[in-house]
Design a protein around this nucleic acid. Structure first.
Lengths: 190, 190
DNA sequence: AGAGATTTTCTCATTTATGGGAATCGAGCC
DNA sequence: GGCTCGATTCCCATAAATGAGAAAATCTCT
């Protein structure tokens, strides 16, 4: 079980349609997109016709060309957005190894530019991100509780509750909490 | 532009780590996951070691096995990112006549698309906006405390703390609080 | 209609991912 | 040490995705 035949094709078809729509919106030709993304015309044609299943690699490149995060692309593929997200239905996930919990208060949706996350970090935690999913991603981070130290492009910032940090992400970043306090914060992403 | 070397590998590595963590969390062996997902042990091994880039098809099957949407998986992979500066010299604004206070947690800036407001509304208040400042303005409203009733384009929504309402403003909107409770909420505007 | 240019699809060779099975590694146990 | 059992990785054949260029389809003028 767990294997559901027919889903594969459905997924491919949905991805295909979405990619086609994305390109149509920008008015790009396959050739232009090929140059922008580094993926060949032929492949693009086959992807948009659901003749093959794209690798994560080429999906990543396409997202980069379209200025999308993979999350958002998948959101476009999978969901039609519901305006009201109730507390209990907000998807959460946890990474116990680093003491990290995040909930999507306002999950990505095709029609929306922004999304909202609530994150919790335990004391003495450290998370590192080598690169943003797409350059110039805009963040507004509001620290609700605890203490948080952020390093972005080499600049380090110590936050206390109530502080709101805005920035555009181009390079590496690091999240750290001191030994004596964790952190709970809201993240608005555009 | 658009093509950024190093992103491919970074993506693969992040997917690999996430898949590894997911399997570890459930305590499954490669064999078990292979049965659940319909993807071979060998492939699973290579994916978790970032030796190859998975097709959307196998990612779909893995998500199915883990009970995740692709969106969720990508959210896990891309996580959030890092921050940069700014703090809390948050200009406040008050309108006593309707019992309304708003503070700009993240004030508008030329380089940024979004802004963050914290608003407080006293009980039994009613505010009406005939038209948005600009059409298709995107709002993500997170109710922190109290109760709030919102009418957007004729659709009315009753919010309780923790709820998040997203919408694009084209027409009129109305904010109302019940007689017995005010409201405190965050507003993310794009 | 027709000629020319653009966009898309198709063909074929190459690269890459995938599956099955054998080999390797690791932890317990006698 | 040697043995067994489980899990993971390696090897090789197959299937699938990708790229470069040719063919086909589509569009735009006159």
């Amino acid at each position: 079980m767990g294997i559901e035949p027919g889903h594969d094709e459905a997924l491919s078809r949905q991805i295909a349609e979405r990619l086609k729509a994305l390109r149509a919106t920008r008015g790009w030709s396959l050739d232009e997109l090929a140059v922008q993304s580094g993926v060949s015309r032929a492949t693009l044609s086959r992807l948009e016709n659901a003749e093959v299943s794209p690798t994560a690699q080429v999906l990543g490149r396409l997202c980069s060309a379209y200025g999308l995060t993979m999350t958002r692309l998948m959101g476009m593929v999978e969901d039609d957005f519901t305006p009201l997200i109730r507390t209990r239905s907000q998807p959460a996930w946890e990474d116990p190894s680093v003491g990290f919990v995040r909930r999507a208060l306002s999950p990505p949706a095709a029609a929306l530019a922004g999304e909202v996350l609530e994150c919790e970090l335990r004391p003495d935690a450290r998370i590192e991100y080598p690169l943003p999913p797409r350059p110039a991603l805009e963040h507004h981070l509001l620290l609700l509780e605890g203490a948080l130290s952020l390093t972005v492009d080499g600049a380090r910032h110590e936050l206390v509750p109530g502080d709101c940090l805005r920035y555009r992400l181009y390079g590496a970043s690091r999240f750290e909490t001191p030994p004596e306090a964790g952190a709970r914060y809201l993240l608005f992403i555009v």
